[in-house]
Every structure is written in C-alpha cells, then in structure tokens.
Amino acid sequence: MRKLSDELLIESYFKATEMNLNRDFIELIENEIKRRSLGHIISV
C-alpha cells in the first residue's frame, strides 16, 4: 500500500466500492487513506 500514490489509492478505493469487493479489502484501503490523512477526500 505504501508504494501507491495518493491518487492511485483514492482511485482504488472508489473502484473497490463500486465493484462491491470484499469488505476487508476495502477496509485495508480505508485504513491506509486515514494513515495518510486523506480521509476528507472520501469522508472516512
């Protein structure tokens, strides 16, 4: 996760939620978004 750019991480989050991927996977992405202080972009 740390090698993904912020932009790609956010894009991955939206794609994963759109495709209804595994909730655990989405939570991993959400946690990384929060760690990077980007939660305001997706309202996490």
Rank of each mutant, 00 (worst) to 15 (best):
I42W: 03
A16S: 06
I29Q: 01
N31W: 09
D24M: 06
G39M: 13
D6V: 05
N31K: 11
I29G: 00
N20C: 10
G39P: 05
L9N: 00
I26W: 03
K3A: 14
E32F: 02
A16D: 01
G39F: 14
E27K: 12
V44F: 12
F14P: 00
E7L: 10
E11L: 13
I29V: 06
E30A: 12
N22I: 05
L38G: 02
I29M: 09
L21N: 08
I26P: 00
D6E: 04
M19R: 06
M1N: 03
N22H: 10
D6S: 05
S37E: 12
N22L: 07
R36M: 01
I29W: 04
A16Q: 05
L28Y: 04
L9R: 00
V44L: 13
F25E: 09
E32I: 02
R36A: 01
E30T: 12
R35D: 04
I26D: 01
S12C: 15
K34A: 09
M19F: 08
Y13K: 01
M1P: 05
K34M: 12
D24W: 09
L8R: 12
N31R: 11
I10S: 02
E7P: 06
I29N: 00
I41H: 11
E7A: 13
E18S: 11
E11Y: 11
E27P: 02
N20V: 06
I26H: 02
L38C: 01
E27I: 12
I26M: 06
M19E: 11
R23W: 08
H40A: 09
F14G: 03
E18Q: 12
S43M: 13
K34E: 08
S5H: 03
E30Q: 08
L38M: 06
H40W: 14
R23H: 11
D24V: 06
R36Y: 01
L38D: 02
V44E: 12
E32T: 01
F25V: 10
R35I: 05
K15C: 10
I42K: 03
I33N: 00
K34F: 13
R2L: 15
E7T: 10
I26A: 02
E18F: 07
H40R: 02
L38A: 02
N22V: 06
L9Y: 01
R35H: 05
E7R: 11
N22Y: 05
H40Q: 07
Y13M: 02
M1E: 03
S5F: 04
F14K: 10
L9Q: 01
M19W: 07
N22F: 06
S12A: 15
H40E: 07
Y13A: 01
S37N: 14
I33H: 00
Y13T: 00
I29H: 03
T17H: 13
T17Y: 12
R23K: 11
D6W: 05
L28A: 11
M19D: 10
Y13N: 00
E27A: 12
D6A: 04
V44A: 14
Y13R: 01
V44M: 13
E27Q: 12
S5C: 06
L4R: 02
L28K: 07
L9A: 00
F25A: 07
N20Q: 13
H40I: 07
R23T: 10
I29Y: 09
E18V: 09
R23P: 12
M1F: 15
K15S: 08
S37W: 07
D24L: 06
D6I: 06
F14H: 08
D24S: 10
D24T: 09
N20P: 06
I26E: 01
M1H: 05
H40K: 04
E11A: 14
M19G: 09
V44T: 13
I29T: 01
L28T: 07
R2S: 15
R36V: 01
R2G: 15
R36L: 02
R35K: 05
L28C: 07
M1S: 02
E7Q: 13
M19I: 06
K15Y: 14
E32S: 01
E18R: 08
L4W: 15
K3W: 14
N20F: 07
E7V: 09
M19S: 11
E7M: 10
I41A: 10
L4D: 02
E7G: 07
E7N: 09
N31A: 14
S43A: 13
F25L: 12
L21P: 04
S12E: 12
N20A: 10
N20S: 09
R36S: 00
L38N: 02
A16H: 05
D6L: 05
S12P: 00
A16L: 05
T17W: 14
N20D: 08
Y13F: 08
R36T: 01
L4E: 02
L8A: 15
L9C: 02
R2D: 15
M19Y: 07
L8W: 07
K3Q: 15
H40S: 07
E32H: 01
L21C: 14
D24G: 09
G39Y: 14
R23I: 09
H40L: 07
S37M: 12
E30W: 14
L28I: 12
K34Q: 10
S37H: 14
L38F: 03
L4T: 03
L28S: 06
K15A: 10
I42P: 03
K3I: 09
N20H: 11
L8S: 11
I29C: 04
G39R: 03
K3M: 14
R2I: 15
D24F: 05
I26G: 01
R23A: 12
S43G: 14
N31I: 11
K34W: 10
I42M: 07
L21F: 11
L9T: 00
R35G: 03
E18G: 09
I29L: 15
E30H: 08
N22W: 05
I33G: 00
L4M: 14
A16P: 01
N20W: 05
Y13P: 00
H40M: 07
S37P: 02
S37D: 13
E30N: 05
D6T: 09
L21K: 08
M19T: 06
L8I: 10
N20I: 05
I26R: 04
I41D: 04
K3N: 15
N31F: 11
R36D: 00
N31M: 12
T17M: 14
A16W: 07
E32Q: 01
T17C: 11
I42V: 08
E11R: 11
I29F: 10
E32A: 01
I10E: 02
L21T: 08
A16E: 04
S5P: 07
D24Y: 05
N22Q: 09
